[in-house]
């Protein structure tokens, strides 16, 4: 295999929220929900994104405008090209239909978990955002339970608060989550307490994407190749999870 970007044409762009857009392009090959691709803008930078849509041979990435790279990406038009390589990493493991599951997405973490929600049958789906205008994919997943920190729509509170209530009523056997690491860590603790299996997607600064540079370390696990999705047993042996992260320079910072 050759780890180099291939140029693809942006064939559609969808405004999801004032700060979030989805870019669609042709994509063929096997993809497990939760895996990521590296997206390259020549002479600018390259960043990891999970595919948030797959429909036949068209895939999409859902991008929050946050820094220089995403600002440049947001300025792209239909017909412009971006480079992609991958997919990389280990995605979510789908559960049998008979398993009662709950999928939790927080903020832009929704992008990672949307394709799982497409494929996982018989799952409760919770989305949390700070406020109503930041909620994603409301028409795509009509049954989704919504929470907002400010109570502007749905449950007032965090996804963790809602999940805690739902665990009391339903007998979830498996919980999937992607979102801010503090949220993921609380869900991991909740699952440990209630003996529920879980898989969460962990984010770090990615450089190579194929397990050689060591930049995305989390307690000896390489997010890019050993993850980004880890289960409860993996996370138990990752003391850095929820606590510290390695930045672009290799400095360790508290989360």
């Amino acid at each position: 295999m050759i780890e180099q970007p291939q140029m693809v044409k942006i064939c559609n762009i969808k405004d999801e929220t004032p700060n979030v857009k989805t870019f669609f392009f042709e994509f063929t090959g096997h993809y497990d929900p939760g895996q990521f691709i590296m997206v390259w803008i020549p002479l600018n930078d390259e960043k990891p994104f999970t595919l948030s849509y797959i429909n036949g041979n068209i895939a999409g990435i859902t991008v929050l405008r946050r820094g220089d790279f995403t600002k440049t990406l947001h300025a792209k038009k239909i017909g412009d090209q971006i480079g992609i390589r991958g997919p990389y990493g280990k995605g979510y493991g789908l559960s049998e239909k008979s398993v009662t599951t709950c999928i939790v997405g927080g903020g832009i973490g929704m992008a990672s978990i949307a394709c799982l929600a497409d494929r996982q049958e018989n799952a409760t789906f919770i989305q949390g955002a700070r406020t109503v205008t930041e909620l994603l994919f409301r028409h795509r997943f009509k049954e989704m339970k919504l929470c907002t920190d400010d109570g502007s729509l749905g449950y007032k509170g965090t996804t963790v608060d809602l999940l805690r209530e739902l665990i009391g009523k339903h007998n979830y056997q498996k919980i999937y989550a992607c979102g801010p690491e503090k949220m993921l860590h609380k869900i991991f603790e909740l699952c440990s307490e209630h003996h529920i299996d879980c898989e969460v997607s962990v984010e770090r600064y990615i450089k190579c994407g194929f397990g050689i540079c060591g930049q995305c370390d989390c307690s000896g696990q390489r997010i890019c190749i050993d993850g980004p999705v880890f289960n409860k047993e993996d996370l138990r042996n990752m003391p850095d999870f929820g606590k510290t992260a390695i930045t672009k320079s290799g400095s360790r910072v508290s989360l």
């Binding site: 295999m1 780890e3 180099q4 390259e46 960043k47 450089k207 190579c208 194929f210 672009k248």
Partner: peptide
């Protein structure tokens, strides 16, 4: 901080 990505390709 080092160079911008891509930093490693094959």
């Amino acid at each position: 901080e080092g160079h911008k990505n891509p930093t490693v390709i094959t």
